[in-house]
Computed example of a mutant assay.
Amino acid sequence: MMNNLFSIFDPTTNIFNLPLNWISTFIGLMFIPYSFWLIPNRHFMFWNFILNKLHNEFKLLIGTNKKTSNGSTFIFISMFSFILFNNFLGLFPYIFTSTSHITLTLSISLPLWLSFMLYGWINNTQHMFIHMIPQETPTILMPFMVMIETISNIIRPGTLAIRLTANMIAGHLLMTLLSGTGPSLSNYFILMLITIQILLLILESAVAVIQSYVIAILSTLYSSEVN
């Protein structure tokens, strides 16, 4: 019996009250070694195709002529893969959705944002000051623009974390609410409910891909601003 609606996202288990559900976050690491000793199949080749497309896109956003951009795309590709795997894993029954917790999402976005800020203010201080004031800004509005840009810059890790968490929780809560009405419905309405749940599952699969892509793209754009 649930104590409240959000108890389905409780990361604790009944085994000595330990957070064993977080182990599902690292299950994806088990699939990394197989690519080194198995013959590449269609799924692996398709995944490599996606990663190559992302690499080329991230490289264009960061900049190809910058020495500091060498290898930077692998950070965002790894983050995309990690978030995508955990988003899809949460769609399976009885598997914990780690990306629906701000503990994980903020742990990803905050260190990344801090590293961008430290690198930018230490190595490109003048560029960071220039970035606070857009071009052709009137002199009177400059203090306000600096304040607005500073606030928008500070809340970036929070918006990244909350965006992913809210999208994951919203879809799962909607599916939970609909499934809870099943026992009280007639056979005709249960067929309609199953159809709606399948459509919602397809939508959630699309959201899982889109949100991981959005997080990776926004992180890449934030990194390009400090160079």
Rank of each mutant, 00 (worst) to 15 (best):
L185W: 03
F36T: 11
P157T: 10
H43L: 14
A170C: 06
M45F: 12
L191P: 11
I39D: 10
G63T: 06
M30R: 03
F6V: 13
W47K: 10
N17A: 13
M2F: 14
T125A: 03
T176R: 15
F80Y: 12
P40Y: 04
A170T: 14
N3T: 12
E225V: 03
S224G: 05
L51Q: 13
P111D: 01
Y188C: 12
P157F: 01
I162R: 05
A161P: 01
F144V: 12
L91P: 03
N21D: 13
F44C: 10
N4V: 06
F144N: 08
M175K: 14
I210K: 14
N123M: 11
T150M: 09
N123C: 03
F49C: 15
S179F: 09
L203M: 07
L200Y: 05
I130Q: 13
L200G: 05
T125S: 09
I196L: 12
S179G: 14
M132T: 06
G182C: 14
A206L: 12
H172Y: 10
T105D: 02
S184I: 08
N187G: 13
S219R: 01
P157M: 08
L141P: 04
E204V: 01
L51P: 03
S184P: 04
I217T: 06
M142C: 08
N41Q: 01
M45Q: 07
I190S: 13
G158S: 05
S186E: 11
N21H: 14
Q211S: 01
H55E: 14
W121K: 04
K59F: 04
L201M: 01
I62C: 01
I102T: 15
H131C: 03
S109I: 06
F116V: 02
H131S: 09
F16K: 15
M168Y: 02
N56S: 13
T105L: 01
P93V: 08
N167F: 00
V226P: 02
I148T: 15
L178A: 13
W121F: 12
L54T: 10
P40C: 07
K67D: 10
F88V: 02
G182Y: 10
F80V: 09
M45T: 15
I210G: 01
I27A: 08
L38M: 11
G63R: 05
F96G: 11
L38S: 10
L91K: 09
F116R: 02
T176S: 11
F96Q: 05
N4F: 08
I23L: 15
I23R: 11
L5I: 10
S224D: 02
N87L: 09
L60Q: 12
K67F: 14
K59H: 08
I169R: 14
